[in-house]
Deep mutational scan, measured.
Amino acid sequence: MLYVKVKTEDGEELVLEVEGMTEDEIREELAKAGFKIEEIEVYEVEP
């Protein structure tokens, strides 16, 4: 499983499960949803 931890400019932290997306695609999708991203951390969790 691939997850991203996202910190927004307003200090909110989100953890999202993503599969088959690049970091650029993740940033693009979050921007479309109205999030202003300060930091993204991508990590993989073994089942």
Rank of each mutant, 00 (worst) to 15 (best):
E9L: 11
E28Q: 10
E41R: 08
V45C: 10
Y3C: 15
E9Q: 12
L30C: 05
A31T: 11
I26D: 00
M21K: 09
V15T: 06
V45M: 10
M21I: 06
M1Q: 08
F35H: 04
K7T: 14
G34S: 02
E9G: 09
V15E: 05
I40E: 01
F35Q: 01
E23F: 14
E23I: 15
K5L: 06
E29Q: 11
E29Y: 15
L30Y: 04
E28K: 11
I37K: 08
I40S: 01
E9M: 12
E23V: 14
V18M: 10
T8F: 13
G11Q: 02
F35V: 06
E41N: 08
E28R: 12
Y3N: 13
E38L: 15
D24Y: 08
Y43L: 09
E28F: 11
V15K: 04
E12C: 15
L14R: 06
L16G: 01
G34K: 02
E23W: 12
K32G: 04
E28A: 12
E44W: 15
Y43A: 04
R27D: 00
V6S: 00
E39A: 12
M21Q: 05
E13K: 03
L16F: 14
V4S: 00
T22P: 02
L16M: 09
K7C: 13
E17Q: 14
D10K: 07
E25N: 04
E13A: 05
L16R: 01
P47C: 10
L30N: 00
V15Q: 04
E28W: 10
Y43V: 07
E17R: 15
E25Q: 09
E46Q: 12
V42N: 03
A33S: 06
E28N: 11
E46V: 09
A33N: 06
D10F: 09
V45I: 11
V15H: 07
E19L: 10
E44F: 12
D24K: 11
V15R: 05
V42R: 05
E12S: 12
V45N: 09
K32A: 07
E38H: 12
L16N: 00
E13M: 12
V18S: 02
F35A: 01
Y43G: 04
V42I: 14
R27G: 02
E29M: 15
E38S: 12
T22G: 04
R27H: 03
P47D: 07
I40V: 05
V18H: 01
M1E: 04
L16A: 02
I40H: 01
R27N: 02
K5P: 02
V42K: 03
E13Y: 15
E12L: 14
R27Y: 09
T22W: 03
V45W: 11
I37S: 08
K32D: 03
L14G: 01
A33I: 11
E17N: 07
T22K: 03
E13F: 14
V42W: 13
V15G: 02
P47H: 07
E29H: 12
M1D: 04
T22N: 06
E41M: 11
K32C: 09
T22A: 03
L14H: 06
Y3H: 15
M1R: 15
F35K: 02
K36C: 11
E28D: 08
I37F: 09
L14E: 02
E23P: 11
I26V: 06
E39T: 13
L2N: 08
K36S: 07
E28I: 11
D24H: 09
E46N: 14
Y43Q: 04
D24L: 09
D10P: 01
P47Q: 07
A33P: 01
E19P: 05
T8K: 05
E29S: 12
R27V: 07
Y3P: 03
I40N: 01
M1P: 15
E12R: 14
E13H: 08
K32R: 10
T22Q: 03
K5R: 07
M1Y: 13
R27S: 02
E17D: 04
E29T: 11
L16V: 05
E9K: 13
V4G: 00
K36V: 08
Y3K: 15
L14F: 15
L30D: 00
Y3I: 15
A31D: 04
E12P: 03
E41W: 15
V4P: 02
I40G: 01
E39N: 10
V18C: 14
D24G: 07
V45A: 09
G34A: 01
E23L: 15
E39Q: 11
V4H: 00
M1N: 10
K7I: 15
L30T: 01
L30W: 03
I40P: 01
Y43E: 03
E38K: 13
F35M: 05
E23D: 05
R27W: 07
V42T: 05
V15A: 03
M21D: 02
E17S: 10
E19N: 13
T8D: 04
V6H: 00
I26Y: 01
Y43D: 02
L16K: 01
P47Y: 09
Y43K: 04
V6T: 01
E12M: 13
A31K: 08
I40F: 10
E41I: 13
T22L: 04
D24F: 10
